[in-house]
Simulated assay, not measured.
Amino acid sequence: MQYPWISQVEKLLDSSPTVGGLLDLCEENYRLLMRLAPDLKRLRDNLASRRPGHLDLHLEILEQTPYTTMIRLTYFFPHGEGRQADPDAVLRVYHDARQIEVIRLEQHVLPVESSYHYPSLFNKWKINVFLSKWLRFCVDRGHRFEPLEQFLTKKHG
């Protein structure tokens, strides 16, 4: 699978990450996610954002607490007799700090395994750069998640 924004990601990965840069990137990822799911604190269960001509984007609420939300965000591709999630991200969203922590990210486009130079910071940088570009891609395609009652009000109200 090839994403159209992969060349932009590769350029960003050539730069040297800093802790401040990583925090800025985590804040940007939070802002992008809030564009996809502005009422994230009110969402429950599994949701799908459907856009004509694009894969459905799936969001699963794994945990809701007063200050954090843990989610799974993915696409599902037909694979054999089943389906394969790619990218497949588990994210913890800190609403008070307006940050996102990547708990797990599996994807087949960029290597995000450990590297000899700056293993911890560099890997977090790579993962968050990928997440940033993917979230931007989803926002640009018009994906959006809304609480079910809001959707029903718009459709039938």
Rank of each mutant, 00 (worst) to 15 (best):
M70A: 07
G157C: 11
L59Y: 05
R83A: 15
T153P: 01
L148G: 01
T74F: 13
H95G: 02
D140N: 10
Y116N: 05
V9Y: 03
D140H: 04
T18R: 01
W134S: 00
S120Y: 14
Y3T: 13
D86F: 07
G142Y: 09
G80L: 05
G20D: 08
F77W: 13
R83T: 12
R144A: 12
A48Q: 14
R141I: 05
L73F: 05
H156E: 11
H54L: 13
G82H: 05
L110I: 13
H143M: 07
R31Q: 09
L55E: 11
P147G: 07
F130G: 03
K133Q: 09
Y30K: 02
E146Y: 12
R50L: 09
V19R: 14
K133M: 06
P78M: 12
H79V: 11
L135W: 04
S16E: 12
G20C: 02
V93P: 00
D56F: 03
L22Q: 00
K126Q: 11
L33D: 03
L73I: 13
L91F: 08
E149Y: 15
T74R: 15
K155W: 12
Y75A: 13
P111C: 15
A97R: 15
V93I: 08
E81T: 15
V90T: 12
F145Q: 04
L59R: 08
H143T: 07
S7P: 02
H79I: 09
V93Q: 00
E60L: 06
L152T: 07
L47G: 05
P66H: 03
G20N: 08
R72D: 04
S7N: 10
P52A: 14
Y67P: 01
P119S: 03
K11I: 12
